[in-house]
Structure formats: C-alpha cells, structure tokens
Design a binder for these strands. Structure first.
Lengths: 189, 189
DNA sequence: GCATTTGCCTAAAGCCTTTAGGCAAATGCA
DNA sequence: TGCATTTGCCTAAAGGCTTTAGGCAAATGC
C-alpha cells in the first residue's frame, strides 16, 4: 500500500468531522484509521493517544468557534452584539454537535492555556462594554452569560426543549431579550 | 466462592459511588465487578449492558436530586425558593460530581418518561409561581433557569471559574440576585 | 546514486463488553 | 427432611479499542 498522507492536522480535521457524524464520545483512533483505510497503529505516529486526538479536536473547535464569534462581533455593540455572539454558539452547536461537545472536554491547565478559551472570555467581556457594568459585577455577568449560552445550547441539543411548546427558537429570542434587559438593569448588591 | 448478593439495586448504588470517585465516564462493568470481587460476567444477570448500568445510575441521580429539591422547596417561595433550589443543584454537583454528570446522560424517550425529569421541570415552575409571569413567558423563564443552573454548575465543575477572582461562590450569589431581579422585572415582548 | 528519514505495516499484549453454557448453593414444596 | 427447581456466580471465548515495538519500503536530501 502506498502512503495516504496522514498528518496530525488531517487527522484532527477528520476527527472533527467524525465527531459531528457519530458523536464526540464515539471518536476513536480505530474509527479514524478505518476512515483513512489505514491500520490503527499508523495513527500513533501522528497523535500521541486517543486522549491527545480528542484534545486536538477540542482545541480546533474552540478556535473555529472563537473565529466565528470574532466575525459576528465585528461592528456590533449592545444587544446586537449579545444576540450575534449567542447565535454563533447556538448555530455552531446545531451545525457541528460533535465539535461543540468537544469544546466541553476538560482540558489540562497547559492545554487550556494554549486554547482559544481566553478569546471566548474576552468576547463576552467585549459585549459587556456596551452595558454599564463595573467590576466585580462585570465578571459576574460574564459568568452568567457563559452559563446561559452553554446551558441553553446543551439542553437544547439534548432535546430538553423539543417536546413542548413554545418553540425553542422563540424561547431563545426571549431569553436573550431578558438577558439584555437584565444587563441594562443590573441589580445593586 | 459463595454468593455475594448482587442485585440490580446494589449495583446501581455502587455504580453511583464509583462515579463520584472516578468520574461517570470511567464507570465500567469491569470496575464494578472488581469492586464486588466478582467476575465480570456475573454482573450481566443483573444489568443488561454497560449502557443499562449507566442509565440506571442516571435515573437514581435524577431521583435523588428531585428529592432534595422537593425538600428544599417545602415552605419556601419567591427568591427564597429560587436560591434554595439553585443551591440544591450546585451542592449536589459538588458533593456528587459523578452522579451529577450522570444526570446529563442523554436518555431514550422511554427512559426519560420514567425518570424524575418531570419533577425537575415542575419544581422550577413552582418557583415561578412566586413571580408574576404568564405563559408563554413562564416557559421561557423555566428554560432560562434550567440553562443557568445547568450551565453554571457545569462550568464551575469544569474549573472554568476557579482560576480568576472573584470567588465562584460570590458570583453564584450575585447571579441568583440578578435572576431574581429579572424575574420580578421580566421584559415585555 | 546512495544514505537517511519518514510513513505505514505486522505483531502482540492488555483491558472492556457481551454471550453461552455449567455447577453448586439457595429455595420451595411434598 | 428430601428432592427438584431456580438462582447466582463461574469459566470460556469472541470481538473491539488502545498502545508499544520493531520492520520494510517509499520519499527526501546530499
């Protein structure tokens, strides 16, 4: 057999596609080898371990997501920016459920440091500049927004909102309305 | 070897303990067999599969959590109730991380139907009776609260809030203050 | 053109899941 | 109490995923 041209990069991308197709949990070095029609052991020259592969997929997804967020935020402020960033997360999760799941993989401190995690936090802070919050409330608000985005998208993806009225899309819009109202009217301690 | 007294019930409870010790992902039929000092195959008379075991642990955790919630809600209303239920989730997740992770296991529709999931939704609705919301805003608010509880607790458990000031405990309190304010002042569409 | 590097392969060990079939302890019933 | 049945745990075995070691041939570099 000739060479297929395996690469850490290609394996990571293919792993991300595989995750979207079968779920992040089901991403396996074996499945990836099958996809390239190559023996399993061959992959171990390019990724250290199954864990390493998953971490790389997570880092890729975090970067993609941060890139989309940056695009969406460009030129927007206030509620507009809030909705834009929120929709980036939700849309990404719906379009790429496996990759989105990957972003929730617990990272080692070193991996986290080299990840786009910081960019995500920074984007949320950027949104809050359109509101009138000072520290420490700004940090509390960052955490609240992160919780809502992550929580809502996770629950929606798990189907929690799909078996009752009203439509999840409608709740999403109203939840963002509510968050905007809350940020404009943040309670004093 | 004599009989150890394996039971679906005992396996489920031991599985939940194991989950809290090593993580829900690491709960394995093999590990459980080791814990009972019994051969792996023996467990298969009591649980159908590894998936079945995990589902049972998830259902157990959902029940425990609902029980705690019901206790906490008894005799409380308004912000008091909100904080009480929120703390139940957060405390449970901190005391029983493996069980908490189990509650996020995607369930089949049948399993979900027989689960305490309905009680959880009902408890959140009960809290909202202390505020002045009518449908469909009440449902939007239910989804928001669920998202915040789930999202905050997940992120906190993943360590997202542990490497920066202020303390997560403080953010939690202020986030609940903010939610209370929001519910008292829910924006019109 | 030859030496070195690189890429994928075979082999093998270890662990997890799951099914099949067996023996002995517990239980139930005369 | 004695015997039959059920029940509980065991051995055996097959199949899948992970990971390491060592080998050969294609690609690369001088």
């Amino acid at each position: 057999m000739g060479r297929v041209g395996l690469t850490t990069e290609r394996l990571t991308r293919a792993g991300a596609e595989l995750a979207d197709e079968v779920g992040f949990e089901q991403v396996t070095v074996s499945a990836l080898a099958r996809r390239f029609d190559v023996k399993v052991a061959s992959l171990y020259s390019h990724v250290k371990s199954s864990q390493d592969l998953k971490t790389r997929i997570a880092l890729l997804a975090l970067e993609e997501l941060a890139d989309r967020g940056a695009d969406a935020l460009a030129g927007r402020a206030g509620k507009d920016a809030l909705i834009a960033l929120a929709d980036v997360y939700r849309d990404y999760a719906r379009q790429h459920p496996g990759r989105y799941a990957a972003t929730k993989l617990p990272l080692t401190p070193e991996a986290a440091a080299g990840s786009a995690g910081g960019r995500h936090a920074e984007m949320t802070r950027a949104i809050l500049r359109g509101y009138d919050l000072t520290e420490p409330d700004q940090t509390h608000a960052v955490r609240l927004l992160g919780s809502v985005f992550h929580g809502y998208v996770s629950l929606e993806l798990a189907g929690s909102f799909s078996h009752s009225a009203p439509d999840s899309q409608e709740s999403w819009a109203r939840v963002l309305d509510a968050l905007d109202a809350l940020l404009r009217n943040w309670p004093a301690p």
